[in-house]
Write a protein that binds this DNA or RNA. Structure first.
Lengths: 234, 234
DNA sequence: GTCTATAGACGGATAGAC
DNA sequence: GTCTATCCGTCTATAGAC
């Protein structure tokens, strides 16, 4: 359970503990949390079945460790990006586009990092927002509490005329769009063979212009809510 | 002596087969496909464990039956809605907003139907777009093939100046936003207690204005993407 | 069509040797 | 820290009585 922190700095071969985390992360994306067994994980990690219980205790604790490893750093970077735009605003309110970019841009940057597994993790994370498992949702909610409070607060202040419920919903919609953006083609072969241009470098501007268009859309008119949603409007 | 196979039209109590489908649908939303066992299903349905195998064969076949029951009708309605706007256009191209409304409006109508389980199903469907299970993805892709071809084709024609990749991506983003819209608060307690206004009647205009804002956003500018050769040309 | 009983595989977790 | 061996629960699926 406890890592011996020796001062031997010689390029360490990946420890069992890390190999297990990497294998679990990859398998969770491939098969989902429930459908991934400890045996699959230890087998891919080249470790013994008992090792995962030794290092993490339970499967649930392993799941948390997989998420925490990346999420702590991601949220730190998101907050740092928000700090930067707020400092740059120099006392004034940052623009909504800057706030959106601080949050979703940072996310997409991690998603574009295929070398250190960031892309794998972001696909996992995007799928996990809607995870049925209650303990995972609870855990994610805690990890996100501070970040959401900061970003939503900034958005509220930057859009003083807009009802907060509306901003909240639109942020929610943006999360959905980002989740699918990251899941990309691999989420669904619905669009099989049709994503001719899946260049991850282009995903960022693509998504960002969509998100900002949605965020800045005219407010919905609720006056006709009671009527049948006609197709002739607008 | 009790099971009359002929049409005795007097108020039919829900058959075992239908009770199983209802129970499975609800449990799939609650716990996910993998985490829902046949025992949970038959127990909630008030049926015997062996009944599900008798009626459906395997668990995978049951999953397909749960989706097919609703999806066939939903896609029929989506196509009918598209037919209507195309007929109303009277030879001209329908507006993008009309096409979007035909697809997502129909979806949200089913999601608003809490009386016949439509809302339950749509939450399940939204989550299933990113389902890891390969057989489920394959099945969904087949069910969607015709609908997507029709709607994407209509969007392409209605936006002749816009690159098709861009439309495809934006449709993908819209699917993500809708998925989260339907999952709503229950998807994640991230926003715990903050969705003061979760009136499903208002969800439709809320989402629609976001989607149309995103769809009509100015096209992304790829010129500053990176240093890749050839990208700055267009 | 519905039931009981059970086969047969796999799941998470642990004990204890090394 | 890593291993083998194993406990014990749950899973899907089926056989066969009624």
């Amino acid at each position: 359970m406890f890592k011996v922190t020796t001062a031997d700095n010689r390029s360490p071969a990946p420890e069992t503990r890390d190999r297990i985390l990497d294998a679990a992360e990859a398998l969770f994306v491939e098969h989902g949390l429930e459908a991934t067994s400890m045996r699959m994980i230890t087998s891919r990690a080249g470790a013994n079945l008992a090792a995962v219980n030794y290092h993490f205790g339970t499967k649930d604790a392993l799941i948390q460790a997989v998420f925490r490893r990346r999420l702590t750093e991601l949220n730190r970077q998101r907050l740092a990006a928000l700090d930067r735009v707020e400092v740059a605003a120099n006392g004034a309110q940052p623009k909504p586009s800057q706030i959106v970019e601080a949050f979703f841009g940072t996310s997409l940057e991690l998603a574009a990092d295929t070398e250190h597994g960031g892309s794998t993790f972001m696909r996992l994370l995007g799928r996990t927002y809607t995870e049925p498992n209650a303990f995972v949702r609870q855990f994610l909610a805690e990890e996100y509490a501070e970040v959401l409070e900061r970003f939503l607060g900034a958005l509220y202040r930057s859009l003083p005329g807009v009802p907060r419920e509306e901003i909240l919903w639109r942020f929610h919609f943006m999360m959905g769009a980002m989740s699918y953006a990251i899941a990309g083609t691999d989420a669904l072969q619905l669009f099989a063979g049709t994503f001719d241009d899946a260049d991850p470098q282009r995903l960022m501007p693509r998504l960002m212009s969509f998100l900002l268009g949605g965020l800045r859309a005219p407010l919905a008119d609720f006056s006709a809510v009671d009527e049948r949603p006609g197709l002739d409007a607008a």
